[in-house]
Amino acid sequence: MARLLLNLRHVPEDEADDVRAMLDEARIAFHETPPSMWGISAGGIHVSENADFERARRLMDDYQARRAARVRAEHEAAVRDGTAGTFWTVLRDEPVRVVLTVLAIVLLLGLMALPMVLLGGG
């Protein structure tokens, strides 16, 4: 019976490609499930044989530790170089998105406060 190795929700494509290549290199049989049309399932990479799952899990743990260290180092280098994304760079690059997000937050806070105001508690 197949076992889920990696849920593909919020997984960048390069990471999924790395995992596929790692499993191919280790000669571990796997298959993928596609994401559902309605977004209920994001899809996943499954190890086909139960006997291979523990080895795949160890490989995955090693890969994720290496990737986390690499990405952390890249982010620290970007912060040192001043090229890391900040609120101000997002505001400069996507002002409409930032303004709409702030308006949505204010609207939601207002809707949450509305019952208190209507009940006379505000």
Rank of each mutant, 00 (worst) to 15 (best):
M1G: 09
A2V: 08
A2D: 05
A2E: 07
R3G: 03
R3M: 10
L4M: 13
L6G: 01
L6K: 00
L6W: 00
N7K: 01
L8W: 02
R9H: 11
R9P: 03
H10I: 06
P12F: 01
P12H: 07
D14L: 13
D14G: 06
D14M: 08
E15V: 15
E15F: 15
D18K: 08
V19W: 00
V19Y: 01
V19L: 04
R20T: 07
A21I: 10
A21M: 09
A21S: 14
M22I: 10
M22C: 10
L23R: 01
E25K: 15
E25N: 14
A26G: 03
A26N: 01
A26E: 07
I28V: 14
I28K: 01
F30L: 03
F30Q: 01
H31T: 02
H31I: 00
E32V: 00
E32N: 03
T33A: 08
T33R: 09
P34R: 10
P35T: 08
S36N: 05
S36D: 07
W38P: 00
G39M: 07
I40Q: 08
S41N: 15
G43V: 08
I45C: 04
H46N: 10
V47R: 00
V47N: 00
E49Y: 15
E49Q: 15
N50A: 14
A51G: 11
A51T: 12
D52T: 02
D52R: 03
D52F: 03
E54S: 12
E54G: 04
A56R: 00
L59P: 03
M60F: 13
D61W: 01
D61R: 12
D61H: 12
D62C: 06
R66P: 02
R66F: 06
A68P: 03
R70Q: 11
R70H: 04
E74N: 11
E74Y: 05
E74V: 04
E74P: 01
E76C: 01
A78M: 10
R80H: 14
R80I: 09
R80N: 14
D81K: 08
D81W: 01
A84W: 04
G85T: 15
F87H: 05
W88Q: 13
W88T: 09
W88G: 09
T89R: 08
T89V: 10
T89N: 09
T89K: 11
V90E: 13
V90N: 13
L91T: 02
L91S: 08
R92N: 12
R92S: 11
D93F: 00
E94V: 02
P95R: 07
P95S: 10
V96F: 11
L100M: 13
V102T: 10
L103P: 09
L103K: 08
A104R: 05
I105A: 06
I105V: 12
L107T: 14
L107D: 09
L108S: 12
L108D: 10
L109W: 14
L109I: 14
L111N: 04
L111S: 06
L111R: 06
M112I: 12
A113H: 11
A113Q: 11
A113L: 15
L114N: 02
P115F: 09
M116S: 07
L118A: 15
L119I: 03
L119Q: 11
G120N: 06
G120V: 03
G121Y: 13
G122I: 09
G122R: 10
G122K: 07
G122N: 08
